[in-house]
Design a binder for these strands. Structure first.
Lengths: 140, 140
DNA sequence: ATAACAAATTAGCAATGCTAAGTAAAGCGG
DNA sequence: CCGCTTTACTTAGCATTGCTAATTTGTTAT
């Protein structure tokens, strides 16, 4: 099974490769991964400021600004001036934005789902447990 | 344990999150992720052609060409004309290239290694097996 | 009132993915 | 042997997405 260091390297490389594969497999070609992540987060947590979004996605404010601009032009979200602090704007999903999130979520993992179906029950269980462990690792 | 679709979503999110985390945790600033992956693969599998490298890393030939150019300029690898087929060149690590792989491998996953050390033997085994499965998924 | 700070934005750079098109070599049917 | 197709690699140029630096505008503290 190898040393812990070897396991690390193997896990790291597999994770990065699979991540690339998943990114390549996205359904809606008009919406990048980062863009969809923003819509999904807004859908789950309601209106947020630019800085809050940037912090959660671990990108710089200018990067997030560009992403939000793009999504605003596409009509998926709007900026609303914050009454309490007029430097800020609260970014909120439009109806169209909510729609795209709910419909995309269903199709999003179609590719991966068909792969998992081809695996044995045991292998699926391994991956399911690994997903939990990896989630924990990422939060640390 | 959930449906297969739920497992897909969970695995997908964990993979992408962990990938982001791993990328953020990179030690060596002089060598990008993609560049190091190429060196590591060559170290493990010996000389390969450009097309073979591109296929394994799932990038286009021109992308891999640029990466290889960069690594060649840095002196980490060389192109050797293939005697049997002179369209090809066999790409092989130099001594410096081998050195950077072996020394970097130790530090590269330091973050992940310390996390894995905190896990139980069973959880580590799960992740090790998952790494194999994920590698296979990515190649499909 | 004014200095310091904070949020959002704009401008511009770097890395890294791609496709399209070009070159050189190999393989093949006549 | 000749010309056509395919293959391997390369070059050129574009799109995306990350960044830092600097600007604008608004808030807060002295």
């Amino acid at each position: 099974m190898g040393t812990i260091a070897e396991q690390s390297t193997a896990l790291r490389m597999s994770t990065l490769r699979l991540a690339r594969r998943l990114r390549a497999e996205r359904v809606d070609p008009s919406l990048s991964d980062g863009q969809f992540a923003v819509l999904g987060w807004l859908h789950k947590h309601g209106p947020l400021t630019l800085t809050q979004l940037a912090e959660h996605e671990r990108v710089s404010a200018p990067s997030m600004n560009r992403t939000v601009n793009c999504l605003e032009e596409s009509g998926y979200l709007v900026r609303e001036a914050d009454e309490a602090d007029r430097r800020r704007s609260n970014i909120r999903l439009t109806g169209t934005g909510r729609d795209i999130v709910t419909t995309t979520l269903k199709q999003r993992d179609a590719w991966l789902t068909t792969r998992l179906r081809d695996l044995s029950k045991e292998d699926r269980a391994t991956l399911a447990r690994a997903a939990e462990l990896m989630g924990d690792l990422a939060t640390l």
